[in-house]
Amino acid sequence: MKRSKYTRPAWLGEQGEGGQGTADKPRLTTSAMIASLAGPDQRTAPAPFGHALAKLAEERPEIVGLTADLGKYTDLHIFAQKHPERFYQMGMAEQLLISAAAGMAREGFQPFATTYAVFAARRAYDFICMAIAEENLDVKIVCALPGLTTGYGPSHQATEDIAIFRGLPNMTILDPCDAHEIAQAVPAIADHKGPVYMRLLRGNVPLVLDEYGYTFELGKAKTIRDGNDVLIISTGLMTMRALEAADALRQDKIDVSVLHVPTIKPLDTETILREAGKGGRLVVVAENHTVVGGLGEAVAGLLLRSGTVPKAFRQVGLPDEFLDAGALPTLHDRYGISTNAMVRSIREWL
């Protein structure tokens, strides 16, 4: 995978956006829709989902790609360029997108359907339920802008998508952390026969987990780093933030363990119970999702049912409210999911 040593900071916006500025004083802007989540000088990889799917399709002729007028913004345009005869542009019609994907799956194809997470969860839920999940069809629903990854406000912020799909039988749910994991998750979900909902980070996606020798396995949680004082159970981009918080807290002689949980359903109960059962540690669940109905409540319910009682249990997640529009760095700090906000919270809880 080609890697970039530098990516524009999110607050500078996308290339060619936000005015001219000068060489030494660029105009400070943000792209609320597709701003990169990578920090200054953080390694990134471009469009990992699109490249991984296009490569996989070279050896799997049954793979087809469908989108609801969002090929560029879900990185499916890369698949379309490589395999134009297997790409279907359904227009701004999410219910049609899902129905067509279901029909193709019945005919032996393996559809990868992309849209924004809010549109899949809110506009197309009944079609996903009745046409795909109930029939246990082999459709992969891959959705960009999960949680608070856009500044366009409640119409585009899918803060409750995991809660919605967790209650749907037969549905496997993934929230990958970075480009390294997305690239590995694509062939893994293709090997899995049945419906999958995968949250997608798109564009220039940070590279983090490759530095830890991480390998994705569907349904498995893995300890990225160990520590004796705090256990952070995290998913999605919050694993990146958890690792950054662990480095910052080390300066305070606070030893932090990070358990990455990319598969929300089915949950790796054995690994979570084993790690949470190690006595004396504060257990913190961190997710880019509302605190209602996501990984935090899934873990809390698991611990209660098993009789596992940690030293203390806390959640880092989005509040149960409609969030503001604005620049992502500001919003992440305001709603408690930035690295600095997580560090402040853990210090207070200890």
Rank of each mutant, 00 (worst) to 15 (best):
D252N: 04
L231P: 01
T239M: 09
A242C: 14
E244I: 12
V230E: 04
M240E: 15
R241I: 15
L231M: 04
A242E: 13
E244P: 06
R241N: 11
M238R: 10
G227K: 08
K253C: 06
L243M: 14
S234D: 03
H260D: 12
S257F: 00
R225M: 08
V256E: 06
A245Y: 04
L237K: 14
N228G: 11
S234A: 14
D229F: 05
D226G: 00
H260M: 06
M240A: 15
M240V: 11
L249G: 09
M238T: 14
T263W: 10
A245I: 08
S234Q: 05
V261E: 01
V261F: 01
T263Q: 13
I233V: 15
M240W: 13
A248R: 12
T235H: 08
A248S: 04
P262H: 02
I254R: 01
I233L: 09
L249D: 08
A248G: 01
E244W: 10
H260G: 06
P262D: 02
A248Q: 09
V258M: 11
S257T: 00
T239L: 10
D255Y: 03
L237H: 10
L259G: 02
M238K: 12
R250V: 00
A246Q: 04
A246F: 00
N228Q: 12
V261C: 07
D226T: 13
E244G: 10
R225E: 04
M240R: 15
L243N: 11
I232M: 12
L237S: 12
A242Q: 13
P262A: 01
A248H: 02
G236E: 08
L231W: 03
V230Y: 02
S234V: 08
G236W: 05
V230R: 03
M240H: 15
V230Q: 04
M238N: 13
G236F: 04
A246H: 02
Q251A: 13
R250F: 01
S257W: 01
R250Q: 11
T263E: 11
M238W: 07
T239F: 09
D252C: 00
D229H: 06
A248W: 00
I233Y: 07
Q251C: 02
D229K: 04
R225A: 00
D226W: 00
L259H: 05
D255V: 08
D226E: 11
D226L: 03
R250K: 14
D229T: 07
K253R: 13
G236Q: 09
L237R: 14
V230P: 00
L237Q: 12
P262M: 01
L243F: 13
I254A: 00
N228E: 12
M238D: 11
M238C: 14
R250M: 07
A242W: 15
D255H: 08
R225N: 01
M240Y: 14
A242K: 14
R225W: 02
I254P: 02
P262K: 03
R241V: 12
A245F: 03
D247L: 15
I254C: 01
I233H: 06
T235W: 10
L243D: 14
G236I: 10
A242H: 13
L259W: 08
A245E: 08
M238H: 10
R225G: 00
A245G: 05
N228H: 08
T235K: 13
G227C: 07
V230I: 10
V256C: 05
T239H: 10
R241K: 15
I233P: 02
A246C: 03
V256Q: 04
L231K: 02
T235P: 12
T263H: 07
R250S: 11
L259I: 11
I232V: 13
